[in-house]
Nucleic acid binder design. Structure first.
Lengths: 212, 212
DNA sequence: CAGATAATTTACCGTGCGGTACAGAATAGG
DNA sequence: CCTATTCTGTACCGCACGGTAAATTATCTG
């Protein structure tokens, strides 16, 4: 019970720690990225442990020792994905006008869901929609992540209202819900093979709903 | 090879036919409805044959004799679902103005995806987003169904343009893509537990993008 | 070098999956 | 009543799944 070999690399990049025993042969973050790619492409239920170990280049017990089990691994992957998303979300929320904020959000969503460098679609949307019994616990976590993002946008829009950047009859909650709905729809279309230019046209059309 | 006991009940309601041998003990359409409910709730990959036979009230070999296999059953279920959808889609496309058409489409989508009488979300969206290898063939069929609906709307909007119901710079393809994107997004949110009133507000906000 | 600790490897477990062989039961025609 | 035909029910198949026991190997501490 005096083990101290606690790695924090999932959150920060700090990997220096007094470790006792045989050191790990793989990089945790790289393994998580590999797992992310698989889950992103095939969904939670559609991904088997064989898929994961093959992609991550490790054996099954190493995976269990490092991440608990399939669900635990997926939760860590979710956090990692959410962190990557939050990069561009934070950048978008920092725009000066609410219109620019939403435009960046939608365009960033297009770039993320239809980037040929990573799997099509959105991991969160795919996990939220997967319906099996085993992923019921997953859906809860996914929903809270989604709600957190929507709440951040809503607060940003409320600020915009006080700044006169949005008309006084605008409803930040409705607008934020609308924006996220469009984003989710674009993720579905991206998964179905829609191209970036196609999705950007959708985003532009969606922006026509934005109050002056 | 002189069998003539071919039932057509899946398409029409004609069940009268000269049948030889033991008659079927269950109603094909009722069984399809039961299967639809399960697939709708749990997705294609999340549904097991045990789930299906339990819900349909038949044994496994009866299912295989009547519908081929799991994928064949799902295809028949898809057609049945598409038929049900097409009811309200046709009604919506019959509206006089393009604005009314889209409003009905979105509201009908809300009613269908958030109706407490049937599972939340949209079967097509869930099937389109499911990522496993086994459902790759499924995705093709789902996509063609989706495209068919979008094409119907696009043609309706083109007609609206010639009638002066839409401005001459309106792009029917972009608008149809936008409407379907919103619909898909609403299906995702419905699956995540959004209420009808919440979704209707989204639909109203989405309508603000509609050209005068 | 010896002991403690932890990660690796191999091989395996029980379970549930989609799908089916086979025998019995129900109908139609002769 | 007999036969041909088709559906029903039981019981089963091979397989892939998520997860693990146990032995081995690599590293740190003393």
């Amino acid at each position: 019970m005096k083990a101290v070999g606690k790695r924090i690399s999932a959150t920060g990049k700090v990997a220096e720690c007094a470790h006792v025993g045989r050191p790990r042969c793989f990089d945790t973050d790289e393994a998580l990225d590999a797992a992310l790619a698989v889950f992103w492409k095939k969904g939670y239920e559609g991904t088997s442990l064989a898929d994961l170990t093959k992609a991550m280049g490790i054996e099954r017990p190493s995976l269990y020792a490092a991440f608990g089990n399939k669900e635990g691994l997926f939760r860590k992957v979710l956090n990692r994905y959410a962190c990557k998303s939050e990069e561009f979300v934070a950048e978008a929320l920092g725009q000066r006008t609410s219109r620019a904020v939403v435009q960046r959000l939608l365009m960033g969503n297009v770039d993320m869901t239809a980037d040929p460098r990573n799997p099509a679609g959105c991991l969160l949307v795919q996990a939220a929609v997967a319906g099996g019994d085993e992923s019921e616990a997953i859906r809860g976590e996914v929903n809270s992540l989604r709600r957190a993002g929507e709440l951040a946008l809503r607060k940003r829009l409320q600020r915009a209202k006080t700044e006169g950047d949005l008309p006084s009859d605008a409803e930040p909650a409705d607008l934020a819900g609308y924006v996220f709905t469009v984003a989710h729809g674009m993720a579905v279309r991206a998964k179905s093979g829609a191209t970036r230019t196609e999705l950007k046209r959708v985003a532009e059309t969606a922006m026509r709903a934005w109050p002056t």
